[in-house]
Design a protein around this nucleic acid. Structure first.
Lengths: 199, 199
DNA sequence: TCTCATTGCTAACACTCGTTAGCAGGCCTA
DNA sequence: TAGGCCTGCTAACGAGTGTTAGCAATGAGA
């Protein structure tokens, strides 16, 4: 007896993963269901035994990844007594780990959410805003506590996340840096820019 | 008698600008010629009195902006005798000025080039690589000269451009910061992260 | 052995896509 | 006044879109 099946069947998960790779490579709108089916060795109509619609896949990818980002941030800031700079560093590394664990899904999360139709699109943007606000608050409090330095917390949060979110554009799993090394280096360099007491 | 017309007619330029805004908002693949025509108060077929194809517009936007970026970088590094940190700062500000002068075209340049068909796509990527290499070299030489500090020049160039290129995602022309103020702040913050002699 | 759900197929529907052909009216120039 | 370009229209082309209906084969559980 196999282990109790995940909430979604193996096949459905495979469809999601393959679709994600295509969405990343060609974009959501430019990816056809027939292309996706061919990639899976199926006919287009057969996909609909497993999924409800094309957009449903995009929805699952975008909101699934949002959940992962929030989980990482939550873990990084769980110890509210820790120094804010340390919490921020952990949050950065957690963010990078999600990005590297599934860079295709991350790229879709970052660029293809525009093709969600309402109300999912608005919902998604609210989630994203909330996540960014988490970083902004961390930096703001870090500055107030004298642990960090930046002329504008919102500005700093924006450029920080920007640096991180470019990662799926160049990250290659087979590259010579491991995800952990990348996370560490990125955190190191970005924390340097925010360190208190620089010239 | 009006001044000698630009190489492209006023109308053709208007089509390009309107198309760019749509490409940015909906993506190239999801923007239809009929939508574009409606936006201009025309019928779809009428567009073809002014343009050759949908992709031709994308081509013009992508390569036109590439030219602007190179021009800015060239001007910023024209004085080879200037300190490398100063050259880098100027290059950053030039980059930001191009991004803010036409943020719609910039967004298209950054995200929609994938829909160029070969050989334009490969050509475009070569240009982009060459531009990134310019920044990389500037940073590399700055480190060698002791003016800058970073564990890895390529890494630093990547995150630097990433921070800048996120700008079209949040920049609003009617915001309270002027393009020059944004350029200055961004340069300030990013140069801080690369300053020599930090802890 | 008889269900019954699963999985996939074929064929088709109702559009939408980018693009072209052919034509009409307006305007400048000769 | 005649000719010709410029601009825009309508209508249509062939191809491709996401999705659905209906059916066949399979394999597991009663």
């Amino acid at each position: 007896m196999p282990p109790p099946p995940a909430s979604r069947s193996r096949k459905a998960q495979l469809i999601d993963r393959t679709a994600t790779a295509l969405f990343r490579a060609r974009g959501f709108a430019a990816t056809s269901m027939r292309e996706l089916a061919t990639e899976l060795g199926l006919e287009a109509g057969s996909l609909y035994s497993h999924i409800k619609s094309k957009e449903e896949i995009l929805h699952r990818v975008c909101f699934g990844l949002a959940e992962e980002f929030f989980a990482g941030f939550g873990a990084a800031t769980a110890d509210a007594a820790a120094p804010l700079a340390a919490q921020l560093r952990q949050a950065i590394e957690a963010h990078v780990r999600v990005l590297t664990r599934d860079s295709a899904a991350s790229a879709v999360f970052l660029h293809e959410w525009r093709h969600l139709s309402e109300p999912a699109r608005t919902e998604f943007l609210a989630l994203r805003d909330r996540y960014e606000a988490g970083f902004r608050e961390l930096i703001r409090r870090g500055i107030a506590a004298g642990e960090l330095h930046a002329p504008d917390a919102a500005f700093a949060a924006l450029t920080l996340l920007a640096s991180l979110n470019w990662l799926p554009a160049w990250y290659r799993p087979e590259g010579k840096l491991t995800p952990n090394e990348i996370a560490h280096r990125l955190a190191e360099q970005l924390m340097r820019g925010l360190a208190a007491g620089a010239a």
